[in-house]
Amino acid sequence: MSTGSPGYFPQRVATTRWVPHVEDTQLAWLFGGVLGVLVLASAIGAVLKQTAKNDAAHATINNLNARTRAWWKMCAIFALTLLIGRIGSLVLFGLLSLLALREYITLIPTRRGDHRTLVWSFFVITPLQYYLIAIRWYGFFAIMIPAVAFLFIPTRIAMAGDTEHFLERAAKIQFGIMICSYCLSHAPALLILRIPGFVGHDARLLFYLVLVDQSSDVLQYVWGRLTGRHKIAAQVSPNKTWEGFVGGVLMATALGTALWWATPFTPLQAAGTSLVIGLLGFAGGLVMSAIKRDVGVKDFGAIIEGHGGILDRIDSLCFAAPIFFHLVRYFFAA
């Protein structure tokens, strides 16, 4: 890339804690690339709308265009919060955690005796998890939910005195907090890693994770629509096929590899991490689909036009974020 190698601005050290990322040229290239894809998608959608012949084709294209419009909004919000800096991203992902948790808890049966535990989950545990990132307390961030909240939740439910389906209720709330709050919080936690030679550019790493993960989702969907024949788990999701999975993950890996210049990785390392993001993203979509089938719904919500709920959109990210975070932390962070 003409904008230079990853080491082009190696000495630009953050002088304030919440440095905005406006001057980051490579981040600007990433934004520009996404903008180009969105413009292209909108243009194709507009052309297809003119050429659609029957009602069925119209319905498909209207859904496609609704999805594209939603992507414009989601990208705008994500880009804006990324530009604001760490606080912006923390607030965004904190809200996403709460919205996802709300969609999840709405669908699982809880009882009157769980009310106070849920108040704790929404108003104390989840905000605390993001606060720990804000104050860079990694040690407590890593154990607060898996150790402290894990023990607190069944205790609080037991104190309410209702033993009906006790273990299921405790386990289902624990699972929801692990997925929606703990796992997802690892995405903005990338912003507090100190990577030698990459200081001040951590926003790119978060952008990279989200870009590769969401592209993998879209590419698996498109690839599956075009070539999908052999279903992976028909009971769980009729849309997940081997062709879509392999094609989508490989394309996302190719994309992630091609964007190595924006990361602290070599091209080969970028290929490896993108592959991991794609595989984990697939696992996330599969697991959350299984939960939806279990409770008998199609989507977790209806907040994003054409996509369903927040949790339908970020299920892959919930799985990819913690593994990506720990790979980067173990191999690259100081």
Partner: peptide, 18 residues
């Protein structure tokens, strides 16, 4: 539907479900 889970009888703080 679900208002009884958001703010049931006898509780002060609501849980923001859907």
């Amino acid at each position: 539907e679900n208002m009884n889970r958001i703010l049931p009888k006898g509780e002060v703080l609501p849980v923001p479900l859907l």
